[in-house]
Structure formats: structure tokens, C-alpha cells
Design a protein around this nucleic acid. Sequence first.
DNA 1: GACAATAATTTTGAATTCATAATTCAATTC
DNA 2: GAATTGAATTATGAATTCAAAATTATTGTC
Lengths: 236, 236
Amino acid sequence: MRAQNLDLDDGGAEQLSLSRPVLAVRVADALRELILEGKLAGGEKIREKELTELFGVSRTPLREAMKILASEGLIELIPNRGAVVSEPTASELADAFPILAALEGIAGAQAAERASDEEIAEICRLTENLRTSLEAHDRPGYFEINQAIHNAILAASRNETLRRTHATIARQVHRARYQANLSRDRWEKALSEHEQIAEALSRRDVERTSRLLSDHMMAKLSTVLQAPNRDAQPLA
Amino acid sequence: MRAQNLDLDDGGAEQLSLSRPVLAVRVADALRELILEGKLAGGEKIREKELTELFGVSRTPLREAMKILASEGLIELIPNRGAVVSEPTASELADAFPILAALEGIAGAQAAERASDEEIAEICRLTENLRTSLEAHDRPGYFEINQAIHNAILAASRNETLRRTHATIARQVHRARYQANLSRDRWEKALSEHEQIAEALSRRDVERTSRLLSDHMMAKLSTVLQAPNRDAQPLA
DNA sequence: GACAATAATTTTGAATTCATAATTCAATTC
DNA sequence: GAATTGAATTATGAATTCAAAATTATTGTC
């Protein structure tokens, strides 16, 4: 694996070059990405040396980044032994879903109240794309748009704490969700749920949007739990 | 302020002296405590030098601790300018309550399903103490027991992600909640709610325990929002 | 060849050091 | 006297260094 450039994408040419985030935060983002992509599998030991070389930074910002990921629950710090990538048990995974469902329920309610018409239109547009990618049997595309919709709803809720909390927990189940093999049947059903959600949101039906989103998330639980637990290829 | 001893309370004499947490985590705990106690007021700039002297550690673990608290939302990192203690706006505070309410609702439901009889008995016992402290007009005592009850319910839910998520968000509203001046009327009502919760939990009524806890939390929202925003005395 | 003891190496924890950016404050100008 | 410039000071960002712990390799023994 080649050394990565952590400077990328500062948001473009802003006047006066707004101060970029501290290095540790950028390293944390990059490291989080590695874990979510499965490049660092669950249970795997984190080697500081390897990662400092990969990122081209010294151990100080890397170790700070590790503290951040640990506080998010993505890795576990073991005194005098470094850290390992967390490997949630099936029951821990299952426990995350009611939380996610509740958070999405709140997001739906607040989005129905607070979203701009443009935001709702965008969510509807994404939902249409969702159907397109299902019909094209484009699994990765579907997954990506699906995630974009959920993120858009979270953003439209205008509740930053909610957005951040959701992101933290969603990451923990991210790998498992990605690996879950949607049956054709479940896939169609999920799309239909999404279309109902978009419709309820368009009518700004607070109660229904909330309930549909919450139920939608709980429906994913069973799908995920019965998925095999193969992991992506390891690093280097 | 005197230098603090971060070694305190390792849990007692465990065989083989279980490895203590990494220093950065202990510093983070201590620093978090300072913020929650109001010793470091919202908006206040964090001076590394001052804190390294207070804790008797070097800048490295302190800065790692700061990264942890930043990821919890308790402080904000400003590149090249250090960090400041977060000062949630009223609307951010208000946004946190539906989240807390939902989390407590889940906790109630799962506690009703999963708690041991001993845990439920303990929660009932604490609820009785709550009445005692109300009748003694012991505000700090009431506040402490109240918190112990909520923590006990979270623990009884046997959902570690839930417990951790709740803790993170609860901290953000902690200061505000502490400062909220309960009216006598609201105080009595809150106690009655707690007694209902303990009763529902004893009967392991999942639905009712969940709803009561959720409503109880939302009831606190208005109390907090109308509280004056005076802060505790600053550090040193 | 299996095992235990111990020496060498590697890895981690934390302090220190160095470079750079921000702040302060006096000197200067208008 | 207020505003501005620029040097001096201070604080922060990140690499390096040093010490301690853990891991691995080696040797010796049975």
C-alpha cells in the first residue's frame, strides 16, 4: 500500500486558506476509513510503525488519532500493548440497532419539521436513483445512495448532536451491514420502504416519517445478523 | 488549585495489579471532571501549561486527552490556537433532549427485559432514597441519587453501546441540568414519575417503563431551558 | 526434539525538543 | 490619542528521544 496524502481535499480554494484541521484529526479520518473499508480487520493489532510509514507522519499525531478512534469505540486501547481493531459481537451489533432506529426516528421527525423544500426534493431525487440502481442490480451503487439518503435526512434534521451520534454508532455496524447479502425480496421491500419515507417526508408528516424510518432500520437487523462474517483483505 | 493525583482509585488490590488505563485516558477523565464540575467554564480557553502543571504530566498525554474530549464534543479544537470548552447553545441543548429521551426509553425497555431481580431491587431502593432526600430538601443528594438511578437503569439494560452513548450526550447537558432550579412543584412531580418508573420496572412492563422514562426526560427539557446560565467559579 | 531460561529486539508510553504560528506589547506614525 | 507596525514572547504542532514493557530469538538442558 502506497503512502497516503493526508492533505487532500481541503474544500477547495477558500480565501486566505482557512486553517486545516489538526493533523491528528486528519489521521483519525484516514485511519477510520481504513477500518471501515475492512483494510484493517476486526481483531487485528495496530502497528504504529506500519501506520506512521503509511501516512507519512510521526507517532505523535497517530497516537492522538488512536485515542480518538478508541473513544468512538472503533479500536480498543490495551495498556502497553497498543490497540486492536474492535470486533463487535453479534449481540453488541444487535444492541446497536434499536439505538440507530431510535435516532433515525428522531431524525425523520425533525427533518419533517425543519428540512427546506430543497432538501426534501433532493431526498426524493435520491430515492428515485435508488430504484434505478435496484433495477440495474447495482449493489454497490444502491448501498451508496442508500447511505446518502440516510445522511441527507440526518443533515436535514438540523440536529448536529444527533448527526454525530448516529454517525458514531452507524460506523460500528457499517462493515456488517455492507457484508449483509440482501435477498432480492428484502431488497425490493427496502426500496418500497424508502419510497414511503420520501412520500411521508414530502407531506411533512412528522409522525409517519419518524415511524417509517425507525421500522426501516429495525428491519435491517435480521438481515445483518444472519450474514456470514467474512472480512475484507487485510492491510499490506 | 493543588496538583492532582491521577493514580487514585485503581479499584483496589486486584491480583497481579491489572494494568491501569493509559495515562491519556486518566487525564481525560480528570479533565472531563473539571469541565463537568464547572471548574472550566464554557467558552474558556484551555491552557496546556496550566493543566500539565495541575496534573503533573507532560504535554503529550494531556494533548491526547484533549483529542478524546474533543471527539466527545466537550471541547473544541481550534488549529494553532488550542482548545476551548464547548458552550452549547440553548437550541443545541434542546436538541439533545429528544435523543436522551429516546435512549432512556430504550434503556427502560431493555432493562425491563434483561435486568436481574437484584438490579431492580436496587433501583427501587434508590427511588425510596430519592423521596427521603426530597423530604429533607437535600438538593445535591437528590441530584446524586437521581443520577445513580438513571445510571443503574442504563447498566441494567446490558447494552454497552447504549450506556456509552447516553453518557456522552448526558455530559453535554450535565452542567445545564445541574444548574436548573427545580421548582417545588416540578420536584414532586419528578419524584412521582420516578416511583412510577420503579413500579413499572418491577412488573417488568417493557412498554410502560420505556414510555415513562422517555417522558420523564422530556419533562426535564423545559426545566433546563428556562434556567439562568450562571457558571461555577473558574479554575485557579 | 521439547521445554525453560535468558538475552536481544521490538514496541509502546511519555517527556523533551524543535519549528512554526499566534499573541502581546512597545515603538512609531498619523 | 488612536491606529499600525514589528520585534519579543508565548503557545501550539509535531518529530524526536529516552525509558520501560512486551515480544521474539537464542541458548542450554533434559
